[in-house]
Amino acid sequence: MFEFRFYAVASGRMASELALVHDMAAAGAPEVPGGPPGAGETLWHRYGVPGPLGSWIAHSGRQMPGFLYIIKWDSLAQRDANFPRFWTDPFWRARRAQLTDGMTLVDSIETWLMDPLPAWERLAEPAGGPVGGVHELRLLPVVNGAQAQAAAALEQADLPALMAQGARLLGLWEVVIGPNRPQFVLMLAWPDAATQARGWAAADADPAIIARREDETVRHGRPVYGVADSWLMEPMAFNMPAANLGQTFGGAK
């Protein structure tokens, strides 16, 4: 199970929010509150919280400025047991108080729990190192009852067209706990923003995709996807995501 966490960061507080996440999820955990960073485990690891698969600043989209990261859990039970244990840690409390200095860091937090769609594995690229460029998170509301058709359209038409234009598939999920269900979450990496804009323009004009949308309208009265939310994001150097977000798939080409 994957957890997506989006933070609408208070104005002027992004540097403090990044420092807090870095100290919890990337830096070595100190032995005592206020002590120097330790070697090996992070503070999250100490409490059984997996390190994030990637962390990003959002540069366009709703609720700007935004910061987000994605965690993979073994189960919902693991998440529900370990996150509350971490929140009681004295170093976290002290560091948070130091960085907030009596002021709000974030205005709101959205949390979604997601399951990977099989199409992600079937379209996965070979395992590899860090993936830079411009990353895109796109939220795709799906016609209720048409999830199978929507997933097939992504796998057979939309994603191949986007990948032919230079997109790399980082992840593809269905939201199982969160707002606006049913909804798919798509994460892509592009070489740059110009390629991203050209890629979507080319996909929108692709005859196979146009035919697919027309067929969906006949079957469902509308395309299987509603109006999408989209963020363009900068991956953080201290938590740069790998190809496929580091996931290993047996069927990857």
Results as ranks from 00 to 15, higher is better:
Thr111Val: 15
Gly166Asp: 03
Ala127Tyr: 05
Leu139Gly: 08
Ala161Arg: 14
Glu110Gln: 11
Leu170Gln: 04
Ile177Gln: 13
Val142Gln: 03
Thr100Ser: 13
Ala164Pro: 11
Asp158Ala: 15
Pro126Trp: 01
Glu121Ile: 00
Val142Pro: 00
Leu139Val: 13
Leu137Met: 12
Ala124Tyr: 00
Pro130Met: 13
Leu159Trp: 11
Ala124Val: 00
Ala150Val: 12
Ala161Gln: 11
Thr100His: 04
Arg168Leu: 05
Pro116Ser: 14
Thr88Ser: 06
Thr111Trp: 00
Arg93Ala: 13
Pro141Arg: 05
Arg138Pro: 01
Gly128Trp: 07
Gln147Thr: 11
Gly128Lys: 08
Arg96Asp: 01
Ala151Cys: 10
Leu137Pro: 03
Glu125Asn: 12
Pro141Lys: 04
Arg122Thr: 07
Ala157Thr: 14
Asp158Pro: 02
Asn144Trp: 07
Glu125His: 05
Arg96Lys: 10
Leu99Cys: 06
Pro118Gln: 07
Ile109Val: 15
His135Asp: 06
Val106Glu: 02
Ala164Lys: 13
Arg138Gln: 13
Asp115Gly: 09
Val142Met: 05
Val106Ala: 10
Gln156Gly: 15
Leu113Ile: 14
Gly132Tyr: 01
Glu121Gly: 12
Leu159Glu: 04
Trp112Cys: 06
Trp92Pro: 01
His135Cys: 09
Phe86Glu: 04
Arg138Trp: 03
Pro160Gly: 05
Ala124Ser: 03
Arg168Pro: 00
Ser108Met: 11
Gly133Tyr: 08
Val134Lys: 01
